[in-house]
Design a protein around this nucleic acid. Structure first.
Length: 839
RNA sequence: GGGGCAGUGGCGGAAUUGGCAUACGCAGCGGACUUAAAAUCCGCGGGGGAAACCCAUGUGGGUUCAAGUCCCACCUGCCCUACCA
């Protein structure tokens, strides 16, 4: 190891031009981080004379360790926030923790550490790790969702929703994760095997009394993205999630007179309904079933309910079902059609009952063939020359066509079929146009301890009663035993749930379920602005100045969870009158995912996890930050490369050298001596780089920010060696480079800025403005093509006229060779780029 | 089954409005410095060919003076969704 020491010694002796010490990132980074903090450099405050900018990145969950993915999400966002600050905006860039949730409780069960202790320890640890990034967080605004000061307002919002009829309790079949021992929202159940978003265990259905928010009231409004600059992909995911479909509600009647309503998108096929199917859980199962069929029906229903969704929804599963013995009457033609029960009809969608039109629906067709039911075509497609026939048809006809066999509507052309049928139904009062959504109300009850208690009490006399606002927060008790029973541990606390009814004062019990953590993260962007405010969820002065969020960044995995909930939440608060805008976050951008070096998803079990802490230790935060911006398109992500980071580290060392080099002082004495051409070339590069970096930061194209900065560094390095540009111009270049680097690599920029003797702080400088004249090329290389193929290149003045450019092109020997002495048929001139000669 | 995104050197990627394909970097090769190595610096770098040139952006067509970029079909990979009436 002594050899290394020795080699370091040689370094300074041999390279005469280097007269300063080496770049030791950790040393300068720690020093500047402390200085910025002492100076409160990044503390933001309301200033109505300035244009505000609220820049937000999704708040982290305090898992205990800052992952490289956090860095990837946060440092480019920080760079852009810093850039906007230099552009003169009053920027707020807050941070906090989404601190309630299952992992804390699982740690408690596994390692016998209190969830609270586990969470706060992790937060403390992550605060330290976050500080190493050198981001411009305003720590004064930090909010932690498990603080009573925070969840008090989560509970308060619950009460507001409750009072306005937007929160309700209902018994319903819900998704339950047997591993996490809690119910889940529809949004937290993923994949074709219907697994828990967190632990990947297959969910089961349970009938439970649960609390819901009426997000479905906002289904249509959630489809409106006109006020938002959000990625198409997120818009599409949310649109599909809401799943709006237009059609009609049609009321059939059972023979005993019960109304049996169905939803259909194809009312025009009503005359082709040959049977009905209701879900096994449908309320009419009991009454439509005849005694003769009761036994078969009961066993089918019991089996269906026992099955998981996975089994029921297996795509290639053969259709199953059972006849009830009952019949319904088709309102359009008074026909008597049999009522079946089948699990392909879902009780949770539409009305839980369908009219089956096997001639024009794949599922109904398969079912009808399987059970030998009638198939009656009622639509004849224009391109079908054969007679539609239910006995011979091989597959249902899904194509548009003219209505046939449809009584009074026979002959209606395809483009009017649906509209006219609905009008006809409405006239007769047996149906009406309707819209149905896939979206379901947001289930917020969780049978877990580590969450905000739902502020409701149950009184034997008065029923469910909201906890009075003056009694908030309903505190979580600390002394608790964790038993994964499928019920909230709060239920087993000896005294906590017993309380007095707020209405009659009699004995009452508290709701023991806690709230979904997505409730806490639906409004954190508001609390950040005044986290210590006691008289309301926020300080109106801060709120009205900063809101809404101008730019929001985070992962796309939240498209149909957090991002849909927080939009809903804002709209609900607007309608209650608590705030006055429609959307919480105006611009959204998503980062991609970093994979391990083996191109696999990073995981401890694969052993391919990249630890940011050790990278920072080795290369410094600035190198890690710039590498994360450089190595991939930010919105796409890529596999990590351990050797790649060496490249940006080398770049920073080169910057260090060119800015520190004491020869700067001697780089030719004056502008007079400096050579005109190299001066103009260097200045052009400097101003082109300003244009490029500005454009790229505006557009979230961080990888090309770094390559542009590298190119400028290379140009400065060449200029330094050639020694032909003069001190003044060289320094203009170095200073501009440092300012352009400041958002990306805040520490080294600040250090070198100071070493150049410039006034503190580089982060308080204004963003360089490109001089368009300096950036403009004087000479351009004109590409000469014949028939679109490059044959020659000539250097011409940038402002060359079209005529002259074409003339010069035709003079070229290489062009003439292809012309064979003939006049060209056509000559195309693209100014500043090329001449294409077509012979 | 349905929908979407992507495919460019050995690798990550660039090409902003249809106009020089491969910027920037990694890895590699050659050189300088060194007793040697590391570090650093300089240079080379899609494939074929002696050269003129030819061929290359997943494959095959098309539009155009000109296509990585636009259109059609297909292949591969990834993501979302899934009996949604």
């Amino acid at each position: 190891m002594g050899e290394i020491e020795f080699s370091r010694g040689i370094n300074w002796k041999d390279i005469g031009s280097v007269t300063t010490e080496k770049y030791v990132p950790r040393e300068i980074e720690l020093r500047w981080q402390q200085r910025w903090e002492v100076d409160k450099l990044y503390q933001s405050s309301v200033d109505v004379t300035r244009q505000k900018f609220y820049f937000l990145t999704m708040l982290p969950y305090p898992s205990g360790d800052l992952h490289i993915g956090h860095w990837y999400a946060m440092t480019p966002s920080d760079a852009r926030a810093r850039y906007l600050r230099m552009r003169g905006y009053n920027v707020v860039f807050p941070i906090g923790f989404d601190a309630f949730g299952l992992p804390a409780e699982n740690a408690a069960i596994k390692r016998n550490v209190h969830p609270k202790e586990w969470t706060y320890q992790n937060i403390e640890n992550m605060r330290g790790q976050l500080r190493t990034m050198g981001a411009m967080w305003d720590w004064e605004r930090e909010a932690v969702s498990c603080d009573p000061d925070y969840y008090r307002w989560s509970q308060w919002f619950f009460l507001q929703l409750y009072k306005h009829g937007m929160a309700y309790r209902k018994m319903s079949p819900v998704d339950f994760c047997p591993n996490c021992n809690t119910t889940l929202a529809r949004e937290q159940v993923w994949g074709d095997d219907r697994h828990c978003e967190r632990c990947e265990t297959a969910v089961v259905k349970k009938d439970l009394e649960q609390w819901f928010f009426k997000i479905t009231d906002y289904a249509d409004e959630l489809l409106d993205f006109s006020k938002l600059d959000w990625p198409e992909r997120v818009q599409r995911l949310q649109t599909n999630w809401v799943g709006r479909s237009e059609g009609a509600h049609v009321t059939f009647h059972t023979e005993s007179g019960d109304a049996l309503e169905v939803f259909t998108t194809r009312p025009d096929t009503l005359w082709g309904a040959t049977f009905m199917v209701i879900a096994p859980e449908h309320p009419l199962v009991e009454s439509v079933t005849t005694d003769r069929h009761r036994k078969a029906v009961e066993s089918y229903v019991a089996a269906a309910v026992r099955q998981t969704d996975i089994q029921r929804e297996a795509a290639d599963k053969e259709k199953t079902g059972v006849f009830t013995g009952g019949y319904a009457v088709n309102p359009v033609n008074a026909e008597r059609i049999p009522i079946w029960i089948a699990d392909y009809v879902l009780v949770t969608y539409g009305t839980g009952a369908i009219m089956a039109v096997p001639a024009h629906d794949e599922r109904d067709f398969a079912f009808a063939r399987h059970f030998g039911l009638e198939i009656r075509p009622v639509v004849q497609s224009e391109d079908e020359f054969f007679e539609a026939d239910g006995v011979t048809m091989m597959e249902p006809n899904m194509h548009p066509g003219m209505m046939i066999n449809s009584g009074p509507l026979t002959g209606t052309p395809a483009d009017q079929a649906v509209v006219r049928t609905i009008a006809w139904l409405e006239e007769r009062g047996c149906g009406k146009g309707a819209v149905n959504y896939r979206l379901r109300d947001w289930l917020i009850s969780r049978q877990r301890y580590w969450g905000a208690p739902i502020p409701i009490t149950y009184c034997t006399k008065c029923g469910a009663q909201p906890v009075p606002e003056s009694q908030l927060p309903v505190l979580l008790p600390d002394d608790i035993e964790w038993r994964p029973t499928g019920e909230s541990p709060l239920k087993y606390h000896p005294s906590w749930q017993h309380t007095a009814c707020p209405t009659c004062g009699g004995a009452a019990t508290r709701e023991t379920d806690t709230m979904d953590t997505f409730m806490c993260s639906s409004w954190y962007q508001y609390r950040y602005l005044s986290p210590d405010y006691q008289d309301g969820p926020w300080d109106l002065e801060e709120f009205s100045y900063w809101m809404p969020v101008d730019t929001y960044t985070g992962g796309i995995e939240h498209a149909t969870m957090h991002l849909i909930y927080t939009r809903y939440f804002t709209k609900a608060l607007r309608d209650i009158g608590i705030l006055d805008f429609d959307e919480p976050m105006l611009q959204l951008r998503n980062q991609g995912i970093i994979l391990g070096e083996d191109s696999e998803k990073m995981s401890k079990s694969r052993g391919n996890v990249v630890a940011p802490d050790s990278l920072v230790e080795k290369y410094g935060a600035d190198a890690v930050r710039s590498y994360l911006m450089f190595f991939a398109r930010w919105d796409q992500g890529a596999p990590w490369s351990g050797s790649g980071i060496e490249g940006v580290y080398r770049w920073l060392q080169r910057v260090w050298r060119i800015a520190n080099d004491k020869n700067i002082i001697n780089i030719n004495a004056s502008r007079a001596q400096a050579q005109d051409r190299p001066v103009r070339d260097l200045r052009r590069k400097v101003h082109q780089t300003i244009q490029q970096v500005t454009y790229d930061l505006e557009n979230f194209e961080f990888n090309t920010v770094i390559s542009a900065l590298m190119e400028l560094t290379n140009a400065l390095n060449t200029a330094r060696k050639d020694g032909m540009v003069g001190r003044e111009v060289y320094l203009e270049g170095v200073e501009t480079l440092l300012k352009l680097m400041a958002p990306v690599t805040p520490h080294i920029s600040e250090e070198l800025w100071e070493r150049l003797g410039r006034p503190y702080s580089v982060h308080q400088q204004s963003w360089p403005v490109a001089d368009a004249e300096a950036a403009a090329a004087e000479e351009i290389t004109l590409v000469l093509q014949v028939n679109g193929k490059v044959r020659d290149r000539i250097v011409v003045p940038a402002d060359i006229s079209a005529d002259l450019a074409q003339a010069r092109a035709l003079e070229s020997k290489h062009v003439q060779r292809y012309l064979d002495g003939q006049d060209p048929k056509k000559v195309i001139y693209v100014p500043g780029r090329l001449v294409n000669v077509v012979p």
